[in-house]
Design a protein around this nucleic acid. Structure first.
Lengths: 307, 307
DNA sequence: AAGCAGGCTTGCAAAAATGCAAGCAAGCGT
DNA sequence: ACGCTTGCTTGCATTTTTGCAAGCCTGCTT
């Protein structure tokens, strides 16, 4: 015999409610949370209000500066983050055991490598494996493999993260490039006396960014951009000197090296995945494919003369 | 620049999906899971298939004996149980800090106490606090306070769980009762020679259940039921001897004690809640109210003569 | 063998959730 | 002051989810 007196209002917490609360905690705005969740912001607005109504708890104060967590909101965020870790761990575990050559893979790579090599190679791979879908995210930021923001990363670094499983491809060299006409008209004894076409911080050339910061007080930067193609065209039009990876600069017929590639601007090219995904058939297959394809570009990427 | 090659199929795991998988793991059938989740079974059927399709993972084999977990299903269950604990902990934390005299409370109590006292007392409490909703679950099984199956429990026991916060009300005594006519016509020297009206295992008289099991080989049980009122009416109609709590037996005009209340059938009456809810205003208010109300019935519950 | 109970799968209607679009408010830049 | 951008709240149409009901299957009891 089960009786109810004056109805029953207590109902179990919906686990999905916590993803909404967590997204708002992280973003601080409804719109930001909506973008993170890939939902319409009116949906987030309604769901938050429904959640707070249902649970009789106020997770956020609505202030001028945005949605500010209450104490309850902070407690919910802590719990939700632990749950997030659990769910991600399970996700990796499930995908990590998948022996089928089907499903989706998310790949992250820098701009230059994506433009020159990866677009083509991934297209070829997908033609070989029609049941595999590859999402190529071109970005300079390091998407986290642990959070499954990416399943496979092409990285330019000398120190791959310990938690990753990596395959080294080759050395990765940078040099300074300019047009012959610019060099003929503007010969200087010192590098920092040239007109420099420098990437914004958003660009993923770590050594070039460091170099720019060290020379900034003396170097004359005539142009900055977050788009490397813009800078390359400026260099081709005799506007100055641009730092580029060798595979890119050496491929441009209108640009020549200003100096030999300096050793201190040399890094390494790696393929990385998460340890948990090392047995996932589709990740292994793509990793092997890309490793072979990129090694065939080894001389170009390493800036070996004659290429 | 964010690019997609051949579309994107990977989407984040819905946390609620895991509650469905967990419920099926625990129940072993779709119908059982549906009952646990308070959903229609066709909904569970469709959601499981949608989940498996979306994630490309098989959590269950469909066998004759029901839905049997795969390896992936077991991994999901382990993760889901850890998440369940997190969510329950958060739930208790949120409710535990609620200082308002509104919201819902779930109370669990045995049948006899519910019929004689709690229905009336809870009604009075709710009239005092119109914003509080009380759900009275009448059951002999020990609903778990930790799982928020109940927020407040009225328990007959000598050993309350250590994890609870308890308030002792009084002693709780049992005795044997029969009609005068039955005793006049059926006087025996030994208790086990009477005709016994015994509760099923489903009834919540722990000492009476123990006593029945110890005497079963010798005692003649002429009637069993999972409904105590049925047994009481049989006793009133001169059919035999029935073990009852004193407050119940002494309240029946047609029944008298067969013997004095034996000390070995004496337990204690407690009010219990979870440690985490000790500051919850509505739980504290109801606990105080019921404690006072039940203490006014102290002599009756303890079987003090004259009552 | 027939009937019953429990569990499942499927079609359709109803309910709930979501996206689209409009409007409002606040802050910033010209 | 005006225009633009960002973020919010709200109404309505559309989409998705859920419950109801029917039908099928299996195992158990009489």
């Amino acid at each position: 015999m089960q009786a109810s007196v004056f109805g029953s209002r207590g109902c179990p917490m919906q686990w999905n409610d916590l993803t909404v609360v967590l997204a708002i905690c992280r973003a601080g705005t409804l719109s930001g949370a909506a973008r993170a969740l890939n939902l319409n912001h009116s949906t987030v607005f309604r769901r938050l209000n429904a959640i707070e109504e249902k649970m009789g708890v106020r997770f956020f104060e609505r202030l001028q500066q945005g949605y500010v967590m209450t104490e309850a909101g902070e407690a919910a965020m802590r719990a939700a983050e632990r749950i997030d870790e659990e769910v991600l761990g399970l996700s990796r575990e499930l995908v990590g055991k998948d022996l089928r050559l089907q499903g989706s893979i998310r790949v992250t790579a820098p701009e230059g490598l994506s433009i020159h090599f990866l677009g083509t190679h991934i297209g070829q791979f997908c033609r070989l494996h029609p049941d595999i879908h590859v999402d190529l995210v071109v970005t300079s930021s390091d998407l986290r493999l642990s959070r499954r923001e990416a399943d496979l990363a092409v990285r330019v670094t000398s120190h791959p993260p310990d938690t990753s499983l990596g395959r080294h491809i080759c050395r990765f060299r940078f040099c300074m490039y300019a047009s012959r006409a610019y060099l003929k008209k503007n010969f200087h004894g010192k590098l920092e006396d040239y007109d420099w076409l420098m990437p914004d911080d958003g660009i993923d050339w770590l050594p070039a960014s460091i170099w720019r910061k060290e020379l900034r007080p003396q170097a004359r930067v005539v142009m900055s951009s977050d788009n490397t193609l813009v800078l390359v065209n400026a260099a081709k039009n005799d506007l100055g000197v641009i730092p580029l990876p060798c595979f890119w600069g050496d491929s441009e017929k209108k640009l020549v090296r200003v100096i030999d590639p300096p050793d201190e601007l040399t890094l390494d090219l790696w393929l990385l995945t998460h340890q948990d995904l090392r047995h996932t058939a589709r990740v292994r297959a793509l990793m092997t494919f890309l490793h072979e394809a990129l090694q065939q570009q080894k001389d170009l990427i390493e800036g070996v003369p004659g290429k």
